[in-house]
Amino acid sequence: MKENVVIIGGGVAGMEAAKQLLFLGYTPIVVEQKDHLGGHVSQWNRLFPDMASAQDLVRHLGEEIVDANIFLETKVNFINRLREGYLVMLSNGVSVACRAILVASGFRLFDAARKEEYGYGVYDHVITNADLENWFNGNPDPRVPASPKKVGFVHCVGSRDLKAGNSQCSKVCCMTAVKQAIEMKEHFPDAQIYCFYMDLRLFGKKYEDFYINAQQEYGVQFIRGRVSEVGETLDGHLQVKAEDTLSGKPLRAQLDLLVLMAGMVCNPEAAELARMARLEMDSDGFLRSADNISGIVGSNRPGIFYAGACTGTKTVPETLAEARSAALDIHRFIQGK
């Protein structure tokens, strides 16, 4: 009989790991709280840097793991330590004995309403990056005007924000903002797009090319200054305040739509798992890897492994690479090597 490996989280990390573990001859048991696989990526529209379809990625991964045991709308109730391995009790009544568990519980999008000054949920035309992807996916959103003339993107919403309890950079939002700015300009060629940033952290392959392209081809203007306050005018426009730090002057602008680049925080379920399985949390609020250079996918417990954004903010390719790495480490662990 093939050996079970429990994968907690059915996002792209869990799916990719399941695919690799199937290949290595195991039976992955994917436990997902939602009613579908793919996590955040399944709600996204296109992925940088090549504007690949997020749905295609999730669909391809899904096709490769049809032989895995997948439990949707299922939670881990508790994890008991056995003499060798673990007993994982699921909310659907199933309990699984296994030698290895992969935690791929991912991140949660920062609740943008907590930055009250931006008025998410209060003003008519303030949305998040996730809302915009949802709109790109063809789902109507009354907050997106029919033909916006001025659109603003606010970088670092809930990221690099000690007051919000998050010191971390969420890594993907700068690039997401550039991507979404371009996409908005494609939807609304007459619109002027502004990106309000503190630093532009465009570290990945071809990201800088995107930035130059956004400037040159799409006329996106990048304003170095964090938006400090948003108000709503009588005709429903947004009035934003920022400092134009490169001019050294306060700046005001009226916008038709404001997109908040909500950052990544650790999925609160990870803390629950940590309590159940005595895993350590890192100082940034994510799970602590065995080693942040050579052991990202390892934990402080034998047989428990990590992949993806449960240990920190990650891009999709980083997440997929970690998932493959974790699958290999699990294989080695079970083989006793």
Binding site: A113, Y120, V122, Y123
Partner: peptide
């Protein structure tokens, strides 16, 4: 302006 949003904050 979404009044319910303010109520949530209140």
């Amino acid at each position: 302006m979404i009044y319910e949003g303010k109520q949530k904050i209140w």
